[in-house]
Amino acid sequence: MLMENVRRMSGKGGLVRTRKPRITVFHCFTALENTASLEGSDYEIQGIKMPCSSISREGFLLRAFEAGADAVVVLVCPVNSCRYVQGNIRTEKRVSRVKKILDEIGIGGRRLNMYNIVQGDEAAARRIIEQTVAELGEWGLSAAA
């Protein structure tokens, strides 16, 4: 079971504490209108809606981890489909930089990922979340959350 997989030690007397994994989803509203269709009972979704994915600056991505995210997913439009021309390219570079910082910190860059999705493809977005939840089952919850 997923919940068993995401258990972690509290560090106090060997008590085991469990909670649902938290995923923060930064999404441009062209790629995905909202995160309502991504909700699930085994995990928590925090949606951050933006007019363009390039607004997800490095600090916002890191802050999501400080605020308790176990994984952060950034959903952007396909290459050459950004209404602001280069927004998704800028996002990719920012995500790449923050992944390195997460590796350096010890949280792990693998917990932050960007995906290109076709406008309104909720099924693709849902598959991405399911994949992320499955990966969190292997990795466990973030120690920084």
């Binding site: 600090g59 981890f65 400080e66 350096e104 010890g106 949280i107 120690a143």
Partner: peptide, 18 residues
């Protein structure tokens, strides 16, 4: 300002991990 915020976050998170 952005770099200040990033460094503050990175320091806090990094130390929390330790």
């Amino acid at each position: 300002e952005d770099e200040v915020a990033m460094l503050a976050l990175a320091l806090r998170l990094s130390l929390k991990m330790e």
